[in-house]
Design a protein around this nucleic acid. Structure first.
Lengths: 235, 235
DNA sequence: ATTATAAGTGTTACATTAACACTTTTATTT
DNA sequence: AAATAAAAGTGTTAATGTAACACTTATAAT
């Protein structure tokens, strides 16, 4: 006979934390909120909350992110679960971390509604509570790995973007400098970009052509199993 | 004031499941146990158990694996957490999955003590309980990715092994055939193997030289940041 | 008209990868 | 003793991919 419950075992608090990366003003940024409850009230923290009984982990991540920042329908990838006994000083809690890449421009308005969330340049992240710094480092590692296999840039940039912007993005992800000619050749040879006739003149007198990511071409490639491998980029 | 407990939130049962890969008789194998409790008693399952209050996730994985199979001090990597609301029909449970690669020969004796655990060829895995099949597929994917960056073979083979054995291992991981000459050149050029004078004659009249993995050379390389990238192997 | 600034463009040497077939060794068979 | 069968072992070449490198173009501002 099936039991109704695994009675004898410990039930534990399960948290979900969200690591959100953005890209703005040629810098990779991390979204943080000022914690408004104890413990560590007033300190900077990832967006976190507890898993409810009636939602999956993925759903919890969506809900928590939305509640704290207004961001909704963001594609969140699960990163890792953190389970050290003492990671939360209040009570034994495990945390399942998720991460996402978003375009700061497109989502800015939603965020403005909120006062407690702000973007920090990835190199000037303040002290974080609990093991959140470890989570961020782990997410950054994952982002780098992901970026070397897939054209992640497109998730972090607005619909239309220039190649110099895309290059700056990769440079900030890898914290390095890349050769313009090699970078362009590689990106364009992936054949997932569509050039528009518009020029963006924010950064130069000459202006740079705007490109758009072509999701059809992209998904056709991915479905064909063509790995869009974007090998380790070197200066 | 810091609270003593996050009282208002749901406490949930946290399981840990272990996916163990082995390699024997030129085949990639998966370790499973026959479940001896309800629900699904008598069905095949991954090695699983519940997280205790006083142990980390990593520790729980070690303990659970040891309890059910006798295997101890195995390097377990965290895979993913599975959190669908209905994944366990008895009670809402999330499961953190871990995976490991072990050498069947070396650990065989410990396993023999146990009657409920057996190895299954990866292509003839029986029906599994809950979402365990999804876990296995996900682990296999991860193993393939790992194998293309690091010489995983060494974790799955006995101390001394022949190059044809190592090739068979990679072939079974990728489920493909590889060119002998290219394979050998690549493996040997990584310079982490040591050739012994012994020949193994189990598989041929001529006999194949036994090699040994040189952990010093390997860790020196890894520490130098030399990625032992073993690019996608093609036939 | 000049200047300053970022965008844009090609070529070459070098390294890596894929494709490919024959020889060697030795236990077994005749 | 010779023939055979079966897996181990070995190199070369063409094609592809990668890294290094410097000048021209377009345009707003002066």
């Amino acid at each position: 006979m099936a039991p109704e419950r695994y009675k004898e075992y410990e039930h534990i608090l399960v948290a979900v934390d969200c690591i959100i990366f953005g890209f703005h003003k040629n810098e990779l940024k991390l979204l943080l909120i000022k914690r408004d409850f104890e413990p560590e009230k007033g300190k900077w923290s990832l967006m976190g909350g507890f898993l409810d009984d009636d939602e999956s982990l993925d759903e919890a991540a969506q809900r928590i992110l939305k509640t704290l920042t207004g961001l909704h329908d963001i594609y969140l990838d699960q990163l890792h679960s953190f389970g050290d006994v003492d990671r939360d000083p209040v009570e034994r809690t495990i945390s399942v971390a998720y991460y996402a890449l978003i375009d700061v421009e497109t989502h800015d308005k939603e965020l403005l509604k909120q006062h407690s969330a702000s973007w920090f340049p990835i190199h000037s992240v303040p002290e974080l509570i609990f093991d959140h710094e470890e989570m961020v480092l782990s997410a950054l590692k994952r982002l780098r790995r992901k970026a070397s296999h897939q054209p992640v840039g497109f998730e972090l940039l607005p619909e239309k973007f220039t190649l110099p912007e895309l290059q700056k993005l990769y440079e900030s992800i890898y914290d390095t400098n890349l050769d313009k000619r090699n970078f362009r050749r590689r990106i364009l040879s992936m054949d997932v970009l569509e050039k528009t006739e518009e020029k963006q003149k924010t950064n130069s007198r000459k202006g740079a052509f705007l490109y758009r990511f072509d999701p059809k071409k992209y998904s056709r490639k991915v479905n064909n199993g063509d790995s869009l491998i974007f090998k380790t980029l070197k200066p």
